[in-house]
């Protein structure tokens, strides 16, 4: 057989096998999705209870959970804390407009946001302002302090507009 033809044929086979293996690790089937959904709601389900929820017996469900952990589909587990007991009962939403939206300015703002503990969530927004922040503080006066001393002082903040949450109806 001609050498180059053989080479092409061989690398084709190799590619095929690589694809197969990649598929094997990347694919999540419906049972995996059900497992992730169940563990997102309660990470301490026993493997037996989890198996019942997703329709598998204990041993295959355990294997799947270990695989989802090892391959990074499950990033980790966290405790959900009572915000009131953490002194974070007051929720405020803050719309932020930056004075400068060059990528350097955005990056500086994003970096500072990640370091600010009062900011629970931050999304970049399309529309009349640039960012929407969700802030958690103890009460209205600590919010005012956080706004004046922390939020308004984040890099490049030109303007903020706040609406307070009066009641939490539903939270993850």
């Amino acid at each position: 057989m001609d050498h180059t033809v053989f080479q092409t044929f061989y690398s084709g086979i190799e590619q095929f096998i690589q694809n197969l293996m990649a598929d094997k690790t990347d694919i999540m089937d419906r049972a995996d999705r059900r497992i992730l959904t169940a563990l997102r709601a309660d990470a301490r389900l026993s493997m037996t209870a989890l198996g019942e929820q997703v329709g598998l017996s204990k041993s295959p469900v355990t294997t799947r959970v270990r695989r989802l952990e090892a391959e990074g589909f499950i990033l980790g587990y966290r405790a959900v804390l009572d915000p009131a007991k953490m002194g974070e009962a007051q929720v405020a939403f803050v719309q932020v407009t930056l004075g400068d939206t060059t990528s350097e300015a955005l990056e500086a703002f994003n970096t500072a946001v990640r370091k600010t503990s009062e900011i629970e969530a931050c999304h970049m927004i399309a529309g009349g302002f640039d960012y929407l922040l969700k802030i958690r503080t103890r009460d209205m006066s600590t919010y005012r302090k956080a706004l004046g001393e922390t939020i308004s002082r984040l890099p490049h903040v030109a303007q903020t507009s706040t609406f307070m949450a009066m009641e939490t109806v539903k939270e993850g």
Partner: peptide, 23 residues
């Protein structure tokens, strides 16, 4: 005493078709 409400798995939301956030 309810200080810890529960435990959740942290999953990349896009894996569960939950990648788009809207307010």
């Amino acid at each position: 005493d309810g200080s810890i409400l529960g435990y959740r798995a942290v999953v990349n939301p896009s894996l569960l078709d939950l990648g788009q956030v809207m307010f």
